[in-house]
């Protein structure tokens, strides 16, 4: 069974037809060719699939497509304005907060979602907020520093 899904992705209206139970991650990657969000585990344990749904981070690998109907989704591809990177992207780039980079999109999206809710997180709050995202290369200190740097600059606006 397919349903019609009208939603806004990175500021653009999109309409797709899909099984309602299909993961939002697949919808984004396969139908809209937005491959920035990644599959890492399919069990809400690694955060590589993170996207913002109505401004909040969700694990898109376990979010049914039906949940996106009429909603607003932001993926890593939607953060930069033209050539101008989002401050969180700048921070990750300047800190060199990645090695293989496979977790990076999810990390950045999660951090943006975190700062939306709490623009000035403490170190403990950063750890708590980012702890659901795995980096197997273990770039954690740099990731922490990138979020801290961006929060300190106080110019996070998704």
């Amino acid at each position: 069974m397919e349903i019609r899904i009208d939603f806004t992705v990175n500021g653009q209206r999109q309409t797709v037809r899909s099984d309602p139970d299909r993961p939002l991650l697949d919808l984004l990657r396969e139908d809209l060719k937005l491959t920035g969000a990644k599959y890492g585990c399919g069990e809400r344990e690694c955060g590589a699939c993170s996207v913002l749904l109505e401004g909040k981070r969700v694990f898109s690998c376990r979010t049914p497509a039906s949940k996106a109907v009429g909603k607003t989704v932001v993926t890593i591809e939607g953060l930069a304005s033209g050539q101008a990177l989002h401050p969180m992207q700048e921070a990750f780039l300047e800190e060199g907060a990645f090695q293989c980079g496979y977790c990076t999109a999810g990390m950045i999206i999660t951090a943006v979602g975190l700062l939306r809710e709490n623009p000035k997180p403490t170190d403990a709050q950063i750890v708590e907020g980012m702890n659901g995202n795995l980096c197997r290369c273990c770039s954690y200190p740099k990731i922490h520093e990138a979020v801290r740097r961006c929060a300190g600059q106080g110019r996070v606006t998704p």
Binding site: G36, A37, K38, Q89, L93, F98
Partner: peptide
């Protein structure tokens, strides 16, 4: 290719 990593533009094998 660091910029492609933070923008999600880089295509990994699974992409």
């Amino acid at each position: 290719n660091g910029k492609d990593i933070v923008t999600g533009a880089h295509h990994y094998p699974s992409d």
